[in-house]
Design a protein around this nucleic acid. Structure first.
Length: 876
RNA sequence: GCGCGGUUAGCUUAGCGGUAGAGCGCUCGCUUCACACGCGAGAGGUCAUAGGUUCGAACCCUAUACCGCGCACCA
């Protein structure tokens, strides 16, 4: 065993350990294994991505689950990969193309541009994967997949063809969300609402053949007036009823449009009159359809005006045109007023510009299996953690809309449809040279919804599908989670026909969102997102992982504070140093059986705390309460193991021939070997390093077994006849704490040894007395029969403890302290008495509880009596 | 507008019917032979507000306020 450095230095250790893990292929999942299966598919990060704290959280959780499962004896598959991220990648590459060569993708041409994208991907597309390795991720990298892999691409196209043949995919001219920056259609899920301060323009439309009469329309978009093909009012609206059926004058270009009645118009909003622009608004389009209005498109795809009939507007950007249109109306005296107006506009998630509702011909999918998808979650065949996401999911499924799956993007899975002379064929292979493939590609999510099974070969599927759990963020619950469920149910990749065999995962764990210390979302523009690699450099991957998980409660957003990562590192160092302490007393016994030894009360107490921790851990993990689990381990290691047991053990181990010394070492080693394994999922590097340095078992602890609740109970049973000892240890700890309090009250520095006196309730054995002395830094603890003169006193669980302070005792101070203490107890006692003497309480509360309260009252009485005696003593 | 979360010490949070708990930060004392990435002690909370249920409420119910998220065609 080599000497341990004074502090844990993660940098030197992590790299070589990870290299060894990779070399030993410890993460390779074996489909032919006889072990039970545990599997997770990694949500594939975009190839444009770099590691963020969100990724760290997400992947650490998956790693914790995977590593724990390995320790428990499962055959584990954690399947990693990356997503081609069609639009995002295309934007990144096109931006650099413009920067370097001043041209866009159109000028370059499709083939040449795609060559550039592939080149870019080769160069940058796996950065994030390498970063995930720095985190310690135990994914099976030999199975790393990419959504544009040849076989995966083929599967995507086959799925398209299959759905097409079932009549679920159709081509239609409909209103879609058009992104004028990226020049593509988007699905509803890729449009985010954003509050925007804008104006409501009140515009006068004259009634034809009715001089002086006009209807005032309220609109946020005066630039679309040239596209108006009607105005509408509510059929019941008394104010406008008389005008229904007449015609109005469109301001520009000057024209005649009908005034119609439609129940979709809200009479209470604005003026109650709606202008109808069927080409540029979803509701207007629907009203237009009902009344057979013409559709006049006045915008180019890039958002510039396309209306030669109004030369003042033609060619202007839509926002410029809005101002211009307002001033045109002003000139004509048709602008009644402008009101400031706060409303939400849909914004393209990627390009961050307002989307434009636009009539366009696209491919749509009518979702199959919506009913089943609802059922598997409702019936908890797929469990959501936290559960409240079920409602959000249900609401979406119940209101499910057809999915616009075509994108006017080049980088992606090209739609397997072939055109010739206006007719088309849907098949993967080209029907012949005279056929031209549809230029569009598929929505990226149309490939990632297959991720849970198209990443697996048949043997792997047989063993590992359905996966055990999916760990992801709630922001993609519709984009990805819901669609994956539908895909599993539709394509049935499972072993048999049942729902259970075909769902993509049995559980979904939704992480919280990481915010900064002020509660703001992390964003590049705010510059408030720390670089995880810098954090790893500074605190080690173990520190980052443990620190982050400890503050990541289930279902809530996480306020990130670097302090907490520092704590994680400090914790690793604490563990390191506990081992360093142990190393002074010879080699660690790999398979210690402390219960067969003579044990000090302190060892029994620690082992019993370990057992409790094991039982609670199982509950926490079962409920996916990772921060709870991390907290339990933190508290056990720091408080029970180090602060209490280890300090008490110093006494045992420094004495020659202490009869309990070997038991103490055995307890130490037994607990330590479990601590390392229990912590390994959270802190893989430091635990592996310590395990190896102390040769605690096989060359890696990754498969070394798990301290299950069953194992914990077994330990508890082995200690069953020593419960008294554990109780005694706790009493000593408590007495030491009270003693230290007394010292501190009287300003005795912690490095100064002083004698204590003890009037013990029961005779205290020498060993326990020595520990009590050590923990309270007493030079000695001598027995007394009665209160010594003028000495401050505290009540402890083993008797009254006195601090003889010849001459320096301030009687007033001490009397006040004791009186305060007594009053506190008295208040407590009174509260219990009130309860016990209230017939309504005694009639209802179970006898067991009453008994406990009575016992509590008795103890309080005894304590109060002793304090009273001491007060009398001081008064003499 | 509807729905779902949240509101506990300066900060991050646990507790979800029987006397408010932790970590960090802060104050004070310690280089005590594993650890100053440490040890010891202390101060600090009308548990968002108002009602209700209950013998008893941070905890259950009902409103209100603020924060966050989701959904929605109100131009």
């Amino acid at each position: 065993m080599s000497d341990l450095p004074k502090a844990y230095e993660p940098k030197e250790i992590a790299e070589s350990i990870y290299a060894r893990w990779l070399q030993d292929q410890t993460y390779r999942a074996d489909p032919s294994s006889s072990k039970p299966a545990f599997s997770i598919v990694m949500p594939p990060p975009n190839i444009t991505g770099v590691l963020t704290l969100g990724h760290v959280l997400n992947n650490t959780l998956q790693d914790v689950l995977s590593r724990k499962a390995r320790l428990e004896g499962y055959e584990v598959l954690w399947l990693p990969g990356t997503d081609h991220a069609g639009l995002a990648t295309e934007m990144v590459v096109e931006r650099s193309l413009r920067k370097q060569r001043g041209i866009g993708r159109k000028e370059l041409g499709r083939e040449e541009f795609l060559r550039l994208v592939r080149e870019w991907r080769e160069k940058h597309g796996r950065i994030i994967v390498e970063q995930l390795k720095k985190l310690g991720s135990s994914a099976d990298w030999s199975r790393e997949r990419f959504t544009m892999d040849a076989d995966y691409s083929r599967a995507v196209q086959e799925v398209f063809v299959a759905l097409y043949r079932k009549g679920l995919i159709y081509r239609g001219k409909r209103m879609v969300n058009w992104c004028p920056a990226s020049l593509t259609a988007l699905s509803d899920e890729e449009v985010l609402p954003r509050e925007e301060q804008s104006n409501l323009y009140f515009v006068r439309y004259a009634v034809e053949d009715e001089p002086g009469a006009f209807l005032t329309v309220a609109t946020t978009r005066p630039e679309t007036i040239p596209g108006d093909t009607g105005i509408a009012v509510h059929p019941e609206d008394e104010r406008y009823r008389k005008w229904i059926g007449r015609r109005a004058v469109r301001p520009f270009p000057h024209g005649s449009i009908p005034i119609l009645a439609d129940a979709a118009v809200d009479p209470a909003f604005g003026s109650g009159v709606l202008k109808i622009t069927p080409a540029h608004d979803k509701l207007d389009f629907e009203i237009g359809q009902r009344h057979k209005l013409p559709i006049v498109d006045v915008l180019h795809p890039d958002g510039r005006m396309n209306c030669p009939s109004v030369p003042e507007l033609d060619g202007l950007d839509r926002f410029e045109a809005r101002k211009k249109a307002a001033s045109l109306l002003e000139e004509k005296g048709l602008l009644a007023k402008i009101e400031p107006y706060l409303h939400t506009v849909g914004v393209s998630e990627r390009a961050n510009v307002p989307i434009e509702p636009r009539l366009s011909e696209q491919w749509f999918l009518r979702y199959p299996k919506a009913e089943e998808a609802l059922r598997v979650v409702r019936e908890r065949r797929i469990r959501f953690f936290p559960e409240h996401w079920e409602k959000v999911y249900e609401h979406w499924i119940e209101n499910i809309q057809d999915w616009c799956i075509s994108r006017q993007v080049w980088w992606g899975h090209r739609i397997p449809v072939w055109w010739k002379d206006g007719s088309h064929l849907c098949q993967v292979e080209s029907p012949g040279p005279e056929w031209v493939q549809d230029p569009d590609t598929l929505d990226t999510w149309f490939s990632s919804w297959l991720w849970a099974f198209e990443t697996m070969d048949p043997a792997t599927r047989r063993k590992f599908y359905p996966t055990s759990v999916l760990v992801t963020g709630p922001d993609i619950i519709f984009l990805w989670v819901a669609r994956m469920i539908i895909a599993g149910l539709e394509f049935r990749p499972g072993r048999g026909p049942s729902l259970e065999e075909n769902i993509p995962f049995r559980a979904v764990y939704f992480t919280g969102l990481i915010r900064d210390r002020l509660g703001r979302k992390m964003s590049k523009s705010l510059g408030n997102s720390p670089d995880p690699l810098a954090l790893i450099e500074k605190y080690g991957a173990d520190g980052l992982r443990f620190g982050l998980l400890r503050i990541a409660p289930q279902g809530q957003d996480i306020r990130f504070d670097e302090k907490q990562i520092e704590e994680g590192r400090n914790f690793c160092n604490k563990l390191w140093n506990a081992c360093r302490f142990r190393a002074r007393f010879g080699p660690i016994a790999a398979s210690a059986r402390p219960w067969e030894d003579r044990l000090s009360p302190f060892a029994v107490e620690m082992l019993s705390a370990l057992s409790q921790t094991g039982i609670r851990l199982e509950t926490a993990f079962g409920a996916y309460e990772f921060s709870e689990a991390a907290g339990l381990l933190y508290s056990f290691v720091w408080n029970d193991f180090c602060s209490s047991f280890l300090e008490a053990a110093k006494v045992d181990l420094s004495q020659d021939r202490s009869p309990t010394a070997s038991g103490t070492l055995a307890a130490f080693d037994y607990a330590l070997s479990w601590i390392l394994r229990l912590l390994h999922p959270f802190c893989p590097f430091v635990t592996e390093e310590l395990w190896n340095r102390f040769e605690l078992g096989p060359s890696t602890l990754q498969f070394a077994g798990w301290f299950s609740a069953a194992e914990a109970r077994k330990l508890d049973e082995r200690l069953a006849d020593r419960k008294e000892a554990a109780l005694l240890a706790r009493s000593i700890y408590q007495a030491a704490e009270r003693g230290r309090h007394l010292r501190s009250t009287y300003g005795i520095p912690s490095n100064q040894k002083v004698p204590f006196l003890l009037r013990a309730d029961a005779p205290l054995a020498n060993a326990e007395r020595t520990v009590l002395a050590a923990l309270s830094n007493a030079s000695e603890i001598a027995d007394v029969d009665g209160p010594p003169p003028k000495a401050p006193m505290v009540l402890t669980a083993v008797g009254e403890l006195y601090l003889p302070l010849e001459g320096i005792l301030d009687l007033d101070v001490e009397r006040k302290r004791l009186t305060n203490e007594k009053e506190k107890l008295a208040r407590n006692w009174q509260a219990i008495q009130d309860r016990l003497h209230n017939p309504e309480v005694t009639a209802r509360v179970p006898a067991e509880k009453l008994k406990a309260w009575k016992e509590q009252a008795r103890q309080l009485e005894s304590a109060m009596r002793r304090l009273e005696d001491q007060l009398n003593e001081l008064s003499q």
